[in-house]
């Protein structure tokens, strides 16, 4: 029974990591950039939804939609202003600007909202669902279902639509894609937009589950989600999902049955072991350089 409980706890956290990891993995897959500001989009998304719900009195769905829209715009702006001009330069340059953007977002929000944690309004007043004698919080179920659903939708989008095909092409070879008449700039922007919108959904779900939001709240889930993406195979959408779930469950089981203090060490340990055994991640493809 306890094992099952801990498993569900793990799946809940894991599905949030997964949702954020999807954004990481898409951006990395296409522009090979570790977007360290991705975690801070979660923070922005949470604050936007919080202000709209608590102060403007908007209903949950409206606040979530507005937060998604705003984060999408933020993601695209970020890409256009801070990353695009550096696209032809070594990737490390964009990495540094990503860090700059991350600091900028954190400190701006600290000035606006103060560094103190603030409550996130309760979105669902729904009693826990009882499955086989086990009470599962509604938000837990909702989060798991939404993230799996979004992953499948995204997978379908990338596989079946024209824009999805363009994304895959750009991720294989940006130069060749351009020669084939694909608008690389639009494709990259759409990628950032989708990644950021997913982060906003993740943000609202995250903040509903852990209703205390602060300007630095994005760093940790951001880092964990990135690790999840790497674990599952960065650039591979189902990999991000799998990585997120593995991380969440490993964390939860370690806390539950080994030692709550070593959870982080175990998670990073798993990452390192996986990378040593299969460097491209669990579902990743090994790409050979042509000589």
């Amino acid at each position: 029974m306890i094992v099952l409980r801990q498993l569900i706890n793990g799946l809940h956290v894991g599905s949030i990591y997964a949702l954020i990891a999807l954004g990481y993995t898409m951006v990395y897959g296409i522009v090979k950039l570790i977007n360290f500001a991705h975690g801070d989009i979660i923070m922005v998304g949470s604050y936007v939804a919080m202000v709209l719900m608590a102060q403007a009195g908007l209903p949950f769905w409206a606040a979530m939609a507005a937060s998604m829209a705003l984060c999408g715009i933020l993601g695209v702006t970020m890409e256009r202003v801070a990353y695009k001009p550096l696209r032809s330069l070594p990737r490390i340059n964009s990495l540094i600007t990503a860090i700059g953007v991350s600091l900028l977002l954190q400190n701006t929000s600290q000035l606006i909202f103060s560094p103190n944690p603030q409550p996130f309004p309760t979105a669902f007043k729904v009693p826990p669902v009882s499955i086989g004698g086990l009470d599962i919080g509604f938000i837990t179920l909702f989060t798991i279902v939404v993230s799996v659903g979004l992953m499948l939708a995204l997978q379908a989008f990338v596989r079946a639509t024209k824009m999805g095909k363009a994304m895959r092409a750009v991720s294989e070879d940006m130069g060749a894609a351009q020669l084939m008449g694909i608008n690389v700039n639009t494709t990259v922007s759409v990628t950032f937009a989708i990644g950021s919108v997913l982060a906003a959904i993740g943000a609202v779900l995250y903040s509903s589950a852990y209703p205390s939001i602060a300007p630095t709240m994005g760093s940790l889930p951001g880092l964990k989600a990135f690790i999840a993406a790497v674990l599952g195979g960065i650039g591979v959408l189902p990999g991000a999902m799998l990585g997120g779930f593995i991380m969440g469950v490993a964390e939860s089981l370690t806390k539950g049955f080994i030692s709550s203090q070593l959870a982080d060490a175990v998670v990073y340990g798993i990452l390192i072991v996986v990378l040593l055994v299969k460097p491209s991640g669990i579902l990743g493809r090994r790409t050979n350089e042509k000589v």
Binding site: I2, N9, H12, L220, S260
Partner: peptide, 20 residues
């Protein structure tokens, strides 16, 4: 006697153990 680490937000695993 359960611990969390810096900036943890999910304590359900520890609390489940405590409840037990």
């Amino acid at each position: 006697y359960e611990a969390g680490t810096a900036s943890d937000v999910d304590f359900k695993a520890q609390l489940t153990n405590i409840a037990a």
